[in-house]
Amino acid sequence: MNLSFLRKTEVLVALTIVLFCIIVGIINPVFFTVANVFDLLRSSIVMGIFAMGVLLVIISGGIDVSFTAVAVFAMYATVKLLNAYWVEAPMWVAFILAGAMGLGLGFINAFFISRFNLPTLIVTLGTLSMFHGFVLFAIGNSIIRSMPPSFTAFARSTLLEVPLSNGGVSRLHPAIFLTVVAALLTWLLLDYTMLGRGVYALGGAREAAGRAGFNIPRIQYFIYGTVGLLSGIAGITYAALGRQANPQDIVGSELNVIAAVVLGGATLTGGRGTVIGTVLGVALVVIMNNSLILLGIPTTWQRVVLGVIIILGTGMPALQAQRAQRRSQITEGIA
């Protein structure tokens, strides 16, 4: 039997998830209830959208740590603007507004990265600080609890309702659509457009990409613009679901999202990563984090579990690579 498919990260992550689910389900059957599944889906909405943006950047060989600040900027500024000038605005206006702000901020990243050829980590580190500082300093630093009515209505909307045995109902929020659409579009883009191939080409062999005729600055603007756009949408979704806009939220969670994407098989050296892997990576992190309570483990263990997942998830491929390298040392010596 050919077991080589087992070496694929996606398959490994999927198996881990299945195994984990079975164990949790055996210990606590609540895990397999509709209510719990809906909860898990809801918890993945925002992280899922962020992860698609982060995936693009990582495939292109870069890293973006500013997306959380972009999200907070777009989210907070949008809510504040709407509260001040157009409280009755429908929800889609908020999405467009936040998306546009995110896009603009993403272009700032792209400008520094492509015009001055600066390392992406450093640029986004700087803009993370700038964007967040700007929000707190110039836009506001208090939590906004009175949200525009369309936000409240959005928060209450339901895609699916399932009655529970105890008389209540379990609801699935339609915002999951956003995540699904973001994932689908990212997948189509990466696999079926020349622009998407350009993202992979940039991460795989930058010089060759230029020689082949890819327009590298344009790809970079596209990547960082898209991250910004997605972050703006994720930010506004976060605020709507949470029914408040807190400028201190989200920032600080950037490394968690990056970890989820890396667990899904994307490598920080670039050129590698898939949407399906990223979806699985996000699922793994969300399921692990949300299921501890079902296992009777206090939620204070969340961070420990996340740490263990990251170390195991990156350690195993590293050991594999070490072994492979030892085997191929000789070819290296020759070349």
């Binding site: 191939r197 992979y200 080409a201 991460g203 795989g204 062999a205 010089e207 060759a208 990409a209 020689r211 082949a212 050129g271 590698r272």
Partner: peptide
Amino acid sequence: QDFSLFPNFTVAE
């Protein structure tokens, strides 16, 4: 000498 190939792409691509 570096062939200008993309290591992460398939042969066909």
